[in-house]
Nucleic acid binder design. Structure first.
Lengths: 128, 128
DNA sequence: CTGTATCCGTCGCGATACTG
DNA sequence: CAGTATCGCGACGGATACAG
């Protein structure tokens, strides 16, 4: 924790014990932040738009996720007071810096999901 | 899903709907894979060693996490049949490719956890 | 040392219905 | 359109005890 992360060799003793970085990771641990943040990477989106882009998320959980991200300064909520209601969510500077890291993870998932599935198949075969 | 992820501009429409990549993300969604995988990045570690390096994880959850990662072909379990028991866990090729992505996220958490805390403080202040 | 088994609380999250 | 309220299930995960 005390030394500059960038000065360390790859993956050396990172995030051990109860250092406050764990709280930061809790933001990402959920299923959805990993999808919501990159979804906003290209520009502001509205609630409904997010619901459609991210399939499978419920309105409630999207609200919760956005509120949590807003609370942590990653997402900025812009309420264009109008009728019908119009609210836009966009990434803050901080949010964008996280997004670029998460996008790498998402890309990894896209690229390797087949390999994972195959590994599972083999593993389960060898048992019953 | 059909196009090469690397050919896409940053964060464009990734992982929408129910594409199989979601299963891959489920591996990471938990609290612990994010810590266990980078911990193994520098070389094989034993059960007890992992318990110490990653503070706060229980024996049971570590076992579950490792088994799940092994099942998905990310971690290789080497049982050096000996007494006292000696088991080593190391990353597979696939695991290492994921690790490099996760390390970026971990570093982000280390670097920005203070900013997040500050954002939370301000946000909570503005309410009650 | 390296696990598994059991108990059990918490919370993530989905479904549905309702409000501004 | 945006968002909250309520209900409820099931998975995550912690504590403890036990086993090879």
């Amino acid at each position: 924790m005390s030394s500059d992360p960038a000065s360390r060799p790859n993956g050396a003793s990172v995030l051990t014990a109860a250092c406050p970085s764990r709280q930061a990771l809790a933001l990402i641990a959920g299923k959805w932040a990993l999808l919501v943040i990159p979804a906003l990477d290209n520009g502001p989106l509205r609630n409904g738009e997010l619901l459609r882009r991210i399939g499978g998320i419920s309105q409630k959980v999207l609200s919760q996720t956005l509120k949590d991200l807003e609370r942590n300064g990653l997402v900025i909520r812009a309420d264009l007071a109008s009728k019908p209601l119009h609210v836009e969510y966009r990434l803050s500077e901080l949010g964008r810096s996280l997004s670029s890291a998460l996008i790498v993870v998402d890309r990894w998932a896209e690229t390797h999901h087949a390999a994972l599935a195959e590994a599972r198949r083999q593993f389960d075969d060898r048992l019953g």
